[in-house]
Design a protein around this nucleic acid. Structure first.
Lengths: 213, 213
DNA sequence: TAGATTTTGAGAGTTACTCTCATTTCATGG
DNA sequence: CCATGAAATGAGAGTAACTCTCAAAATCTA
């Protein structure tokens, strides 16, 4: 899911030389703004950090900050992994139960982003717990991913991608994964995120528990 | 769920006389602000409606508007039904599967609010589709209700109310019901909301569909 | 009716975000 | 290498949702 993936762009550094000065500068500016934001938030918290401070530290103008990110929350949350994840999901064997596919893709996504920049992943989760605006934006972002997921889900089940059942499935998955993120952060990141996702998917797959165990 | 219930206060009018002038005026102001907001939104849309306009039409100062509602979205979404719904949920027979209890309570809630003020219910759903800020606030509000629901859910299943499984269940329910609301509005309110909720609960109860039907 | 309490209005301040326009910076073909 | 076009930037003004403070007005209580 979009907001649970690492911040760095998945563009391989070997692409950089062929990209032209302009493109390279843009990437650098983007990174500078993000770095400035993460730094300031770590020092003084999210709310106390203003766009002006971010612009100052990133050595750009406030206008430029808004040119790169539509909102303050997006500076923290934006990444480019969703398409890759969806692609991987679609690449899974057609016979596989789609919950298992999601399980696999989620596990891989977590591995990648935790290897890439675990601190950013944790900071995002933490901010989602602490700052309502960030949490909202994260839900919104995950919902968008969930919307893309409908197509893949419909393929596997043979149901209408815009039917209520598929939509409810996708959205309840989003809700469940969001809650996983919250649990993880609230417990001080002591659990293995992959295990939590697995348990959540068990709940979603086998239905909500009706009987006492 | 909070944001799917009607706007009017569940206080019986017979309580009004014993309430004192101050309290009565406060209720009237609250209603005036809400009515002004709904009216303006219907005329010119949500974004085009400013707090100043709302204040003018409600014949109060902008300060007062913010004293009654913390945010613009809350003017549209706030209601007082959640505690009643939770109470009803807890009053259900202990042996009943909790999904059936939710089914019953949701059905009743829908009946009540559609009888009370169907237009407001529809407007809320419509705004949730159209305006991201309203949608976000609605999710947040439903999540709060979902948090309260955990206790009831734990009672029925014997699970830890703060454990991952219960939390994921509650939150996936929230996601599912949110999506029901969106489907309903996007299809022009032509379906019976209660049927949609039933179908959503079927999906949540029996797990996400893995096989082609 | 007097005094304590609550509610309100007025106004100033903050901040995220938008729009416009002039300036600067890079790309490109000759 | 330079001229011309395109893209990125900065500066600044503007909007609107909130927040805070303080004095005036309305209500309650004795």
């Amino acid at each position: 899911m979009s907001t649970m993936t690492a911040a760095r762009s998945p563009l391989s550094p070997t692409d950089l030389p062929r990209m032209g000065l302009r493109e390279r500068k843009k990437l650098k500016t983007r990174e500078a703004i993000r770095a400035a934001t993460y730094g300031l938030i770590k020092e003084q918290g999210y709310d106390a950090t203003t766009i002006e401070q971010i612009a100052d530290r990133a050595e750009v103008s406030p206008s430029t900050v808004f040119r790169y990110f539509p909102t303050k929350e997006d500076i923290v949350l934006t990444d480019e992994y969703d398409p890759l994840m969806l692609e991987e999901l679609r690449a899974r064997p057609a016979g596989e139960a789609w919950t298992d596919s999601v399980r696999y893709v989620m596990r891989r996504a977590i591995d990648i982003m935790m290897a890439e920049d675990p601190e950013v992943v944790r900071m995002r989760a933490h901010l989602a717990v602490q700052v309502p605006a960030v949490r909202s934006r994260m839900v919104e972002s995950m919902s968008e991913t969930g919307r893309l997921l409908r197509a893949a889900l419909a393929e596997r089940t043979g149901l209408d991608p815009d039917g209520l059942e598929v939509r409810v499935s996708a959205m309840s998955l989003v809700g469940g994964l969001m809650e996983v993120n919250m649990c993880w952060a609230e417990n001080g990141f002591q659990d293995d995120l992959r295990d939590l996702v697995d348990r959540a998917l068990d709940v979603l797959e086998h239905g909500l528990p009706t009987e006492k165990p």
